[in-house]
């Protein structure tokens, strides 16, 4: 039961008066009301004196609102990921148009937004999922839009029935938001007898039972995910959105490093930048683990910050510039 009837102005005002609603919540409800039900509450009430919702462009009740704009800006501020960004934009446009079509009583597809994210670790999958949650919340697709990040061990149990129970618990936590399953292919690891299968079945059932309240994202390495989907043909149609996260290029990795440092009020001197580029080039050439991902950069930067501190620790009279500057000798490849 809701604490108020979101379609009724007086009940919203009474909610503020008796302390069941904050002014922000009330404004959100009033926004829906003034928009003739284009918003979350779905009730078509028009306050007196206003033209009908359609003429005011109210289909867009949740488009262009402040937090949505912020979430999109956050997405834009991520380094690289151009394909991902344009795909997200496509999804947002699609959701909006399906909504408007439904309002105009045109045939509209039910929104199925379960996704597969494939790519190496540290390529921005979780970050994107978190931002998508915010976007969907603001568009009214999800009630809360929070992200619950799990892996095999959070879903799979030790005895029969245990797995279903554990999986259901995570589903419950994610209700109204996104359930993000990292290294999802590992659910199919042990073959037919493995409890991973039970987790998959429970997830598939939840997707049907809570169609409008939960979005599932399966994430993992590209090849592994591809063969996982191939071996579970039922999954393909249930996860209509596929997003590939490519490795970052060297230039993008350097941009990420500089952004991380800037946020912490450090900067690289040109020699240090040269050194960093050298390390990245050689790592990528050797095709070592972690190459092309942001975690590699994060490690190098964190180490550099510690080494700089060590270098400066015994020096008297430190200038502001010195405190900010990361030099060549602070940059190192490994621990």
């Amino acid at each position: 039961m809701l604490a108020f009837d979101p379609g009724d102005i007086n009940s919203v005002l009474a909610g503020v008066e008796n302390g069941r609603l904050t002014p922000s919540q009330a404004l959100e409800a009033l926004r829906d009301v003034s928009c003739g039900g284009a918003g979350r509450s779905g009730k078509a009430v028009c306050p007196p004196g206003l033209p009908p919702a359609d003429e005011r462009g109210c289909q867009a009740a949740h488009e262009g609102t402040w937090p949505l704009h912020q979430a999109m800006a956050e997405l834009d501020s991520l380094v690289g990921l151009e394909k991902v960004k344009s795909l997200v934009r496509e999804i947002v446009a699609y959701v909006r148009i399906q909504r408007i079509r439904a309002q105009r009583l045109l045939a509209s597809d039910p929104l199925v937004l379960h996704m597969i994210f494939s790519g190496n670790p540290g390529t921005g999958k979780t970050t994107c999922a978190r931002i998508l949650g915010k976007i969907f919340k603001e568009m009214g697709v999800l009630e809360k839009g929070h992200l619950v990040e799990v892996e095999r061990a959070d879903l799979v149990g030790e005895y029969i029935g245990h797995t279903a129970q554990k999986t259901r618990e995570q589903i419950k936590r994610a209700m109204g938001g996104i359930l993000f399953i990292d290294e999802a292919y590992s659910l199919a690891r042990g073959g037919e007898k493995d409890f991973g299968k039970e987790a998959i079945d429970t997830l598939v059932k939840a997707m049907e039972d809570y169609k409008d309240r939960l979005i599932l994202i399966l994430a993992g390495y590209r090849e592994e995910m591809a063969s996982f989907i191939r071996s579970n043909p039922g999954l393909r149609s249930r996860f209509p959105v596929h997003i590939e996260f490519p490795d970052y290029t060297i230039e993008e990795l350097i941009k990420i490093a500089q952004l991380m440092l800037k946020r912490r009020e450090y900067k690289l001197d040109p020699e240090a930048l040269f050194e960093l580029r050298g390390i990245l080039v050689s790592k990528i050439a050797k095709n070592e683990d972690n190459t092309g991902n942001a975690r590699l950069v994060r490690n190098i930067i964190e180490r550099a910050v510690r080494r700089q501190a060590l270098r400066l620790a015994d020096k008297p009279d430190l200038s502001r510039e010195e405190l900010m500057l990361i030099r060549r000798e602070d940059i190192s490849e490994g621990p």
Partner: peptide, 9 residues
């Protein structure tokens, strides 16, 4: 933010 969201519409 909510005042802005409301008022813009």
């Amino acid at each position: 933010q909510e005042i802005c969201n409301y008022a813009r519409l």
